[in-house]
Amino acid sequence: MPQKTINGTTIDVNEEGFMTDHSQWNREVAAGLAAEEGITLAGEHWKVLEFIAADYGEKGVVPGMRRMNKVGGIATKDLYTLFPDGPIKKAAKIAGFPKPASCV
């Protein structure tokens, strides 16, 4: 299992760069992972990341686009602006969760 060090924290990741041990995640790691995707985390990004964490805690899976809209109150357009070119995949990666397994 590959490891990498981000902002002083060593994390376990899979071959696609998704964290495999969420307990290693913290806000500095998130900022570092976001930077790798060319994203600087701001308040709006955190709203998305926090919703993913809360929903993952409840359901055990990364929420899909519709759940983000309906339950999280995050508009599709905003998600694509905040995390361009693959919003849910990127947000899940930065939030320290597995690659989304849903088709929608």
Partner: peptide, 8 residues
């Protein structure tokens, strides 16, 4: 189509 957009 939606899946494509989600992959960028």
């Amino acid at each position: 189509a939606n899946g494509a957009r989600m992959e960028g």
